[in-house]
Amino acid sequence: MTNSRTGGIVDLYDRISRKIEQGKPMAMSAEELDWFVVSGAYGTLLQAVARRQFDICRERIEARGGDVSFLLSAKPEVESPIG
């Protein structure tokens, strides 16, 4: 990883993109993990996980015959780390 301000995130993007194209796993260094979090990617991941868990729970309640129609406008709230 480079020490420049934009190089770190650009390098991480390039590395992730290559791994996606290759269909291969990757490990992140501590610096790469910092860039991942600061870029907002971690916050986006948290929002996706919260939404999926919300959907799973809603589906289980409905499968048991529960009515969650009053909650359908509800969205799981995860505070964005970048505002």
Rank of each mutant, 00 (worst) to 15 (best):
G65E: 10
T44S: 09
E62S: 10
A48G: 05
T6H: 14
Q47T: 04
V78E: 03
I16H: 02
V49C: 05
V10F: 06
E31W: 10
W35K: 15
R52I: 02
G8L: 03
L45G: 09
I16F: 11
P76R: 01
A50E: 02
E77F: 13
T44F: 00
A27M: 15
W35P: 01
V68D: 06
R64S: 13
L33W: 08
I82F: 14
A41D: 05
Q53E: 11
K24P: 02
M26Y: 11
G65Y: 14
M1Y: 08
F36K: 01
Q53F: 13
M28L: 15
G66A: 04
D55A: 13
V68K: 06
W35E: 10
W35I: 00
V68E: 05
R52F: 08
M1P: 03
G40M: 11
L45D: 06
S73L: 02
G43H: 03
D11I: 01
E31T: 05
K24R: 15
P25E: 07
A50Y: 00
R60M: 14
P81D: 09
Q53H: 09
G40E: 06
K24H: 10
P81S: 13
G40Y: 08
I20V: 06
T6K: 15
Q47Y: 00
G65W: 12
I61C: 08
Y42R: 11
R51Q: 14
V38I: 13
F70Y: 10
V68A: 12
V49T: 05
G43P: 04
V49R: 05
L45A: 13
I16K: 03
S29H: 08
F70M: 14
S17D: 09
D14W: 02
T6R: 15
A27I: 00
S39G: 05
L46R: 04
I56A: 01
T44W: 01
T6W: 11
A48C: 06
T2Q: 01
Q22R: 12
E59R: 05
E32N: 06
L71K: 04
R18P: 02
F54T: 04
P76L: 00
G66L: 01
I56D: 03
T2E: 07
I9N: 01
A30E: 12
E62Y: 03
I20G: 00
V10Q: 09
R5E: 07
Y13R: 15
A41H: 12
R52K: 13
